[in-house]
Amino acid sequence: MQSGTFSPVVELRRYTLHPGQRDVLITLFDREFVETQEAVGIDVIGQFRDLGVPDHFVWLRGFPDLRSRTESLRAFYDGPVWQAHRSAANATMIDSDDVLLLRPARPDSGFLLGPDRPASGNDGIIMATTWHLLPEAEAEFPEMFETVLAPMLGDAGVPILASFVREHGENGFPALPVREDARVFVWFSRFPDRATYERHAAAPGFAEALRPHLARPPEVALLSPTARSRLRG
């Protein structure tokens, strides 16, 4: 992945694990599944502990387009590294099917990441917010976000790192299901620490402006990067 580029197709993957198995999976993932996915054309964007749910592991990966996604997933999951470690990985998991297939809400709203994987250090917090939209709101919501909600977040000191909508194209690798029924808008922010997040998490009037467009309450996850996550707080 080159500096300044982003992935036009992104998977947001949220796994529910057996109690006490999150660090087992993270150790295995960071050791075996980063460079080996990148070698077949997958951008491993970030791996995280969900600070609010002890047995949730969240990660993001990206692809240039849907066709290359299919080809890269076949290459990885049929390849020797996954075949060697899949039993150990799957043994940590209760559920791995909570997956959103996304694309940037506008051409320049994807992740902008440098060419190097940063060293672990001042990791901060990544906030991932998922809004489940009413059917009639889905098409026009990205413009509403840009013109109404994003300025309100900016005034409250909340940085917008990236924003996405559902990718409605066909899942070319059905062995890994995605949530076909989702109507979502997903955006990410970053904070140096939890105290900063709590000071800036609410924008005056924001909930009232957002509520008419939602089918159900927002999902907000506070994510702590693993040692080898490219995306950091």
Rank of each mutant, 00 (worst) to 15 (best):
M1K: 04
T5L: 07
T5N: 09
F6T: 13
L12P: 07
L17R: 00
G20N: 07
D23L: 11
L25T: 05
I26F: 00
T27L: 07
T27R: 14
F29I: 00
F29L: 00
F29R: 00
D30Y: 06
R31Q: 10
R31H: 09
E35F: 09
Q37T: 01
I42E: 03
V44H: 04
P54G: 05
H56F: 05
H56C: 05
V58F: 02
V58S: 01
F63L: 02
P64Y: 00
P64Q: 09
T70R: 15
T70S: 14
D78Q: 02
W82A: 08
H85M: 05
N90C: 08
N90M: 13
T92H: 07
I94Q: 06
D98T: 08
D98N: 08
V99R: 14
L101V: 01
L102G: 02
R103K: 12
R106N: 11
D108E: 13
S109P: 07
L113V: 04
P115A: 14
R117L: 13
P118G: 01
S120D: 14
N122L: 12
I126N: 05
W131N: 12
L133E: 02
L134Y: 02
A139C: 08
E140M: 13
F141I: 08
P142K: 06
F145G: 07
A150I: 07
D155R: 15
P159Q: 06
H168F: 05
N171T: 02
F173L: 05
P177L: 05
E180Y: 00
A182H: 12
V184K: 03
F185A: 08
W187L: 11
F188S: 06
F188M: 05
F188A: 08
R190G: 09
P192E: 14
D193Q: 13
D193E: 14
D193W: 11
R199Q: 15
H200V: 04
G205A: 01
F206H: 00
A209H: 12
P212I: 04
P212V: 08
H213F: 11
H213L: 04
L214P: 00
P217T: 03
P217D: 12
A221I: 03
L222G: 06
S224A: 15
R228H: 12
R232E: 00
